[in-house]
Computed example of a mutant assay.
Amino acid sequence: MTSKELVLYIEDDINMQILLSDILKYEGIGVIVDNGMNIAKILEENNVRMIFMDENLGAYRGSDLCSQIRTFPAYDHIPIVMISGIWNISTIAQNCGAQHFIRKPFDMYDVISTLSTHYVYNRPKNSC
């Protein structure tokens, strides 16, 4: 397991992957992006401190993956933030055990605010 602390972003849309990854990198946070197919391996091999997860992942629902993560004691402490444009994402997030949600479309400040609440980190000097 690596000692570097990372955020895992589960998303199947390339443009969204780039957008959120760029925000996290701007904040000085390492990020791993995956479509949800490798989540178990990523959690096992990395020090994941927070998970951002899209609800619509093609063949999956992010909320189903969130619920599965919550069944493993080794990972149930990791904050999960559901991301979606679905009108009831707040209810979906609550029902699957996520700590928070971000509604699409979002901007950089939605992500930064969520990080400030659920992820303790040292912000770089050039940060907002």
Score class of each variant (00 low, 15 high):
115 L>Q: 11
56 N>C: 02
63 S>H: 06
94 Q>H: 09
126 N>T: 10
11 E>N: 13
18 I>H: 09
95 N>Y: 02
58 G>N: 10
12 D>F: 02
106 F>E: 09
76 D>Q: 12
103 R>Y: 05
55 E>Q: 14
39 I>M: 14
76 D>I: 01
99 Q>N: 14
46 N>R: 03
126 N>C: 04
69 I>R: 02
58 G>T: 03
16 M>I: 10
111 V>T: 05
42 I>H: 11
94 Q>Y: 09
110 D>P: 07
38 N>V: 03
10 I>D: 05
57 L>M: 00
107 D>A: 00
123 R>V: 05
62 G>L: 03
3 S>H: 01
81 V>A: 13
85 G>M: 04
53 M>S: 14
127 S>T: 06
79 P>M: 02
119 Y>V: 06
120 V>K: 15
82 M>C: 09
103 R>K: 11
108 M>Y: 11
6 L>E: 15
62 G>F: 01
76 D>H: 10
31 V>F: 05
95 N>L: 03
88 N>A: 11
60 Y>M: 08
19 L>A: 11
110 D>T: 07
39 I>S: 07
35 N>P: 02
63 S>L: 02
17 Q>L: 02
67 S>N: 09
1 M>T: 05
97 G>L: 08
24 L>V: 07
1 M>R: 01
80 I>E: 11
101 F>M: 07
49 R>E: 13
83 I>N: 05
87 W>M: 05
75 Y>W: 15
89 I>M: 14
39 I>Q: 08
82 M>T: 01
2 T>C: 00
22 D>G: 08
65 L>C: 01
25 K>I: 14
61 R>G: 02
108 M>N: 08
41 K>Y: 13
107 D>R: 09
69 I>A: 09
61 R>K: 13
89 I>N: 08
62 G>K: 01
94 Q>M: 12
10 I>Q: 09
42 I>A: 13
122 N>Q: 11
21 S>M: 03
81 V>C: 14
120 V>L: 06
33 V>Y: 04
103 R>W: 00
100 H>T: 07
20 L>V: 13
41 K>V: 09
107 D>Y: 04
122 N>R: 12
89 I>A: 12
123 R>S: 15
102 I>A: 04
56 N>F: 02
63 S>I: 04
123 R>W: 01
83 I>R: 03
38 N>H: 15
55 E>A: 00
101 F>G: 07
40 A>T: 11
120 V>P: 00
9 Y>A: 05
127 S>Q: 05
92 I>K: 04
25 K>N: 12
73 P>H: 10
11 E>G: 07
127 S>F: 08
72 F>A: 10
72 F>P: 00
117 T>P: 00
32 I>P: 05
85 G>F: 04
128 C>W: 06
24 L>S: 04
56 N>Y: 09
57 L>S: 00
71 T>F: 02
